[in-house]
Design a protein around this nucleic acid. Structure first.
Lengths: 345, 345
DNA sequence: GCGGCATCCCAAACCGGTTTGGATTAAGGC
DNA sequence: GCCTTAATCCAAACCGGTTTGGGATGCCGC
């Protein structure tokens, strides 16, 4: 069923039918009603491809997922995409996903722009120095960043959580429990979120008059076995940490496993705190929290980023939206007072 | 830069330029070379939307992700998508993701078909009785199923792992270690993969002359807290299981957590075996395996499904591809001989 | 020298919508 | 009764490609 067929059926021109369906004022109320009724009855749906070509609007949003060297796919990705996808579907937009080797990321964006495949993109996992901002500006592709680059107040729309503050608070929480040797099992510090978390951690240590121990600071892709290996190794040190702060619940589970293997009781012998993205496969309504955590839903972030981008596309010169969310600090059973004999002399 | 502009630049017609670029034989070798050179020099890229409209080919593959009632997004999804996405990108196809509430899943497919948005789809997470097969046939939308419905030999292209065999072998492995009370912490059994796994488990028990205990069989969405709650509960039974078989590494981690909390040593006091999809955030090259597992990479499955679908689209009447992969049984430290005092009298 | 056959290229139609610039008709004002 | 204006509707152009159905040119054989 095409527009022309529908028009012939109604004895109207394609123009009128198109206008009737799209709510233009040039068609009479009675005609419009007839058209809408007929369209519904015949299950007419306008061909998006034709519409794209005619209007120049892509009616789609792009997400470029670069595969890093080690081919890891960011675990938070699925929940974020789910959140954003809900919004797109409700708004009649398509979601275009482009999975490319990291070196081809720029060309993936360039292609989306040159071919008008999308009306905008959401930029994931910003680095401290992120070349994509400049690139997208040159391409004239509207974007919203999930996170920020290294700058405190960038000049583009973004939604970020206050990573520095979250990790400062989490560190302060551990310090308040008497911990002095606190390990930071961080994500890759080229990523601005990890960079900020480290700064929050360092700030808290400094405020407490403690010098950071490089041996207690690790940075790597956030996988479970990484958390395990890092914790196992540190627990074998002559002067082991009494608390761990990790960048992801996945890493925290790895740390927990190592703690158990060492015969230690989490929350008593060793404390573990983490950031928690509320990933759906690690959470269950009603289940008690496993870890003390700074919590912020990545799914909600996906939803909100999508909304911001759609608004931006609808009103390109509207006010620039920048949101900084505070993570909640949720107490859990994985932290407790530092044991006397473990405390630093 | 449009085709027409390029044609004018070259003093050729749009027809000739189009043919030259698409490798049709009607243009001379010298002309073709000139066209290709000019296209490259000016960075010409054909507008995919226009091409879609003209050819009727969408040059895109669709994935519909239904959000279940509990809003959980399947954790294996990210890795599968990454695998498939690599193949699409390399082949010049787009990936269209549609995230919809479960009840709207049929209309999501209908829309993709009616509007010619995609050339085919990959169907995820088939149920034992799956209505999508009939629907996609009616819509005339080519598809490849990742998994199978309840039938042993369906009449559509699919890629599945031999879930029944894998779980029979895993169960036999535990039986061989002397375990008699083996718990099955399964996924949702409306899903055909979970259904088959249960049958594999039951087959092995029956072959060993054991009657299944309904108390030891759980079925639910595969989340970490589910594994934890299920195991914790069963370990409190008067006659607790001595071994757990779980449907996902995520669930296995939950079980492991409960085992540790009960003060038991995995692989000694209690055994844990699981299926392992080789999710990227749970694996790390060189790290020793955590669990004894039936292993099959979901990422590789994503790649292969994409290949099968692209082949199917290129040659709709070629031979129907149906692949059944065997999972590897990987021994790990999480299983060991059943303790005497725990053995069933 | 002429018909036949490739070879190479092009004008125009087409995909299915949207949008511009009227044309037609009816209502309103004086 | 005539002119203006508003209300409706339409034909045709357009978006940027692909594809059909020739047309022109050059080479061949006889």
């Amino acid at each position: 069923m095409t527009l022309k067929e529908l028009a012939r059926l109604l004895g109207l021109s394609a123009t009128t039918v198109s206008r009737a369906l799209n709510g233009y004022p040039e068609v009479g109320a009675e005609t419009r009603a007839r058209v809408l009724e007929a369209a519904a009855r015949h299950g007419y749906e306008p061909n998006v491809t034709a519409r794209r070509l005619a209007t120049g609007r892509a009616l789609a949003i792009g997400h470029v997922i670069p595969l890093a060297e080690h081919q890891m796919i960011n675990p938070i990705f699925a929940d974020f995409i789910a959140g954003a996808g809900e919004v797109y579907s409700a708004a009649g937009y398509d979601m275009l996903l482009s999975v490319v080797p990291e070196p081809e990321e720029p060309s993936a964006y360039a292609q989306m722009a040159a071919q008008n495949k999308v009306d905008g993109v959401i930029v994931h996992a910003p680095k401290v120095h992120d070349v994509r901002v400049e690139m997208l500006r040159r391409l004239g592709l509207p974007f919203v960043m999930h996170g920020r680059d290294g700058r405190e107040a960038p000049d583009y729309p973004f939604l970020d959580i206050d990573n520095r503050r979250a990790f400062r608070r989490a560190t302060e929480h551990l310090l308040g429990l008497g911990h002095r040797r606190i390990a930071l099992v961080n994500g890759l510090e080229a990523m601005s979120f990890a960079h900020r978390r480290r700064h929050g951690y360092l700030e808290a240590l400094r405020a407490a008059g403690l010098a950071p121990d490089p041996q207690l600071m690790r940075t790597r892709e956030m996988r479970e076995p990484y958390g395990h290996a890092a914790a196992a190794e540190m627990l074998r040190m002559p002067d082991p940490p009494t608390a761990f702060l990790t960048a992801s619940i996945i890493v925290a589970f790895g740390v927990l496993r190592a703690v158990r293997e060492a015969g230690l009781e989490p929350g008593r012998d060793v404390s573990i705190a983490t950031h928690d993205d509320v990933l759906s496969h690690f959470s269950l309504d009603g289940a008690p929290p496993v870890f003390t955590a700074t919590r912020s839903s990545i799914r909600a972030a996906g939803r909100r980023c999508a909304e911001i981008l759609l608004d931006l596309i609808a009103a390109p010169h509207g006010p620039q939206v920048q949101e900084l969310w505070q993570a909640e600090l949720i107490p859990g059973p994985s932290t407790g007072p530092a044991l006397r004999e473990n405390q630093h002399a």
